[in-house]
Amino acid sequence: MPEPITIFVDDIAIETTEGANVLDAALRAGICIPNLCYLPEVTPTGACRVCIVEVERHGRTKMTAACTLEAREGMIVRAHSEPVLRARRNIVELLLAEAPESPVLQALAERLSVTDVRYSRRDRDCILCGRCVAACAEVAKQGSLGMIGRGANRHKGLPFYKEEYCTQCNECHDRCPLELSPSGRRGDHCGVCGSELSMNDAIPDICEDCVLS
């Protein structure tokens, strides 16, 4: 049984357990850390870096993704400090350059006051967040999809690019940030940050910025 501990996120004390996921703990406590690739039902990968936070350890601060950060007793996390916000805006700019047409990314940019993208548009319509790959492996238990290639050539795909390896279960499609659109479906307000973006049927009252789905 993991030990109950206290961590501090944006100076607010949160009760959680040793080794718990900091992003999840913060969201449960009502502190909205913007995130994108995180799916509560699968192992976090820290692919998108949107949930970036500052962690203070031994008087030094370090930036890391909250979704892959394990909680430790007395941990001090800053999710909305100026350096974090600056880094997060930059990350969202980079993501937008990859997929400018994504409504979810546009909503995320709006929320973070990102108005300009300084990077050249690449229009790849994929931000390599890996939600589809994780859904395929851990939700559908198929393990058909994967990330292929390296560096700039990295892309998602089926073995040999053949459709026959896919069972067409659509678990990947349903979680792709480029397929999803914020607001409208539920029309509820987010129970965490109060925005009108809630669209998650499985976890009601949490907006796509918190638990994008």
């Binding site: 198929q142 393990g143 058909s144 994967g146 990330m147 292929i148 089926l158 073995p159 040999f160």
Partner: peptide
Amino acid sequence: EEAIVRISERLDVPVIEVFRLAN
């Protein structure tokens, strides 16, 4: 492709993982 599918079966690793490595 035949070899990759067979390796996947024998080592109990999804086909995509073997393909990814080979790629």
